[in-house]
Simulated scan of single mutants.
Amino acid sequence: MRGPDRSSVSLGLFLAWIIAVTDYPFSPLAECADKVFYTPTGIASHMDSFVAPLSLLTGLIRAMANRIPEQALDTLEELEEVWSGLGIYLESDRS
C-alpha cells in the first residue's frame, strides 16, 4: 500500500491549516487535515491516473496565487532559486 511519507505527516502537525488530497479515506494525512479532498486515482488498468488530483491541486494553487499575488510571486522566485542551485533545470544551448 502506498501513502505519504513520515515527513509529510509530521509537517502537517506544525501548520495552521491543512488541506489533504488523497484517494484513501484512512490516509494519515486525512487524520490530521482540516479539509480533505478525495480524488480517484485507480482506473481499469495496471496504472494509476493522477489527472484528478493534479487538476485539483492546480486549481487550489491558482486560487491561492490570485488571492495573494505578491506572496505567490515571491515564493515562486525563491523556489526557482533553490531549484536552480540544485541543478534541477537544464541549461539551454540556445543563443
Rank of each mutant, 00 (worst) to 15 (best):
V82R: 04
G85N: 06
H46P: 14
E81W: 01
T22L: 00
S84C: 02
A63P: 00
I68M: 08
A52C: 13
D74C: 05
W83N: 02
S84G: 03
I88C: 09
L29M: 10
L86Y: 09
T41L: 10
Y24M: 07
E78V: 07
A20T: 01
A65V: 08
I18H: 04
M47Y: 15
G87K: 11
A30Q: 01
I43D: 06
F26K: 11
D74I: 06
G59T: 12
R67L: 10
T39C: 15
K35G: 00
D23E: 04
P25V: 05
R62T: 03
I19C: 05
A30M: 03
V82A: 02
R62S: 01
F37I: 15
L86V: 09
P25S: 05
M47N: 13
L56H: 09
L54C: 11
G59A: 14
N66L: 14
Y38W: 07
F37D: 00
A63T: 07
E77K: 14
G42S: 12
R67W: 10
H46T: 15
A63F: 00
R62V: 07
N66G: 09
S84V: 05
L60Y: 07
W17Y: 14
A30H: 00
T39H: 04
E80L: 05
T41F: 08
E70C: 01
R67T: 12
G42F: 10
P69A: 08
F26T: 10
F26I: 05
G87I: 13
E81K: 12
G87R: 12
D48R: 15
S84D: 07
L60R: 02
M47K: 15
S49Y: 10
I18Y: 00
T75M: 10
L54E: 11
L29P: 01
A52Q: 15
T41I: 15
T58H: 06
K35R: 14
C32I: 14
M64I: 07
S49E: 08
A20K: 01
F37R: 06
V51M: 14
F37K: 07
E70D: 06
I88S: 03
I43H: 06
E70Q: 05
L76K: 04
L57I: 15
V36C: 02
T75K: 07
M64Y: 09
D48H: 15
E80I: 06
L76A: 09
D23T: 02
I88H: 08
W83T: 03
G59V: 13
L76R: 05
A72Q: 00
E70M: 03
A20L: 05
S45W: 12
I18E: 01
D34I: 07
V82F: 00
G87F: 11
E31W: 00
D34N: 09
I43V: 15
S84M: 04
W17K: 13
T22N: 02
P40S: 13
D34V: 01
S55Y: 11
Q71G: 04
F37P: 00
I43Y: 07
S55Q: 13
D74S: 10
R62N: 01
G59Y: 11
F50M: 14
G42K: 14
L54T: 13
M64G: 05
